[in-house]
């Protein structure tokens, strides 16, 4: 099975966000990037499927040159090669554009299954994988917790998360697009051997312009203002050292909230 897995670099989980002076985006200085959480789980699913069914895992990414670090990490985990669409000026900022670029980059690829994260940890629109499926005319499933490929039958089964503790198995013909939920497995670490091998693996670079897309003609979402929630801190924040705050809390729970 040839599997393409989409991977995006986002600000790391521990980032303390600051807003830029134009209030249009975060201040990226000093922000450390890492692989988007869901995308890491998507890659893990791809690698597990490869172990079971053989074939090739290709990482597909849109990003700046510096995204290479995350891509190398993915290659070290076990992906075979990568395609990076270079977007040095950060032009691809809307799901329709991202999906069109991914579809463009896949024009000459043959793949049986495309995986993507359910959602990114920056914009978090949760649309790109599904739009990609529609652009490619492929079936899709979102928020997938488990994947069972049946390549000899040309099918894939996916367990979708639903509300209130329910899950639903769905089945689709291959090729298909699945968007993978975070936290569904243990993501492997790169071995030392993997890290060494990754240095020699191919990253095919495509300049955004080479794809010949007119991104301006696509639906676009503009972040017109980015800010911390204005209804800041409704909680009464208790002040003092540990002993003081604990005493105050117990007192308030007994006398004010009357819940103890």
């Amino acid at each position: 099975m040839n599997i393409v897995t989409c991977l995006k670099e986002v600000p790391g989980r521990e980032t303390r966000y600051r807003i830029n002076s134009a209030q249009s985006w975060i201040d990226e200085s000093g922000v450390t990037a890492e692989i988007n959480e869901c995308d890491e789980y998507a890659l893990e699913e791809a690698l597990k499927l490869k172990e079971k069914h053989a074939g090739e895992v290709t990482i597909l990414s849109i990003g700046r040159t510096r995204s290479e670090k995350s891509i190398r990490k993915g290659l070290a985990m076990g992906a075979d090669r990568a395609i990076l669409v270079e977007d040095e000026e950060d032009k691809v900022r809307s799901p329709h554009a991202a999906a069109a670029v991914l579809a463009g980059a896949l024009r000459d690829e043959e793949c049986d299954l495309i995986l993507a994260g359910t959602q990114s940890d920056d914009f978090g629109y949760g649309q790109t994988g599904t739009i990609l499926a529609q652009l490619l005319g492929l079936p899709h499933a979102t928020i997938v917790m488990e994947v069972e490929a049946l390549p000899e039958q040309g099918k894939v089964k996916a367990l979708r998360e639903m509300e209130a503790g329910w899950f639903q198995w769905v089945e689709m013909p291959l090729p298909a697009v699945l968007t993978i939920q975070a936290g569904i497995s243990q993501v492997r670490y790169a071995s030392l051997k993997g890290i060494m091998q990754a240095k020699k693996k191919e990253i095919r670079r495509i300049a955004l312009d080479e794809l010949g897309l007119n991104l301006d003609s696509l639906p676009r979402l503009e972040v017109s203002r980015l800010y911390f929630e204005e209804s800041a801190s409704k909680a009464e924040i208790l002040q003092g050292d540990t002993e003081t705050v604990v005493n105050t809390l117990v007192d308030k729970l007994r006398k004010e909230a009357r819940v103890l």
């Binding site: 979402l221 503009e222 017109s224 203002r225």
Partner: peptide, 16 residues
Amino acid sequence: RQMFRNKLNADIKIHS
């Protein structure tokens, strides 16, 4: 809507 793991709010204009 919220962005960046729900830590920030964003006003979004749709161009379509």
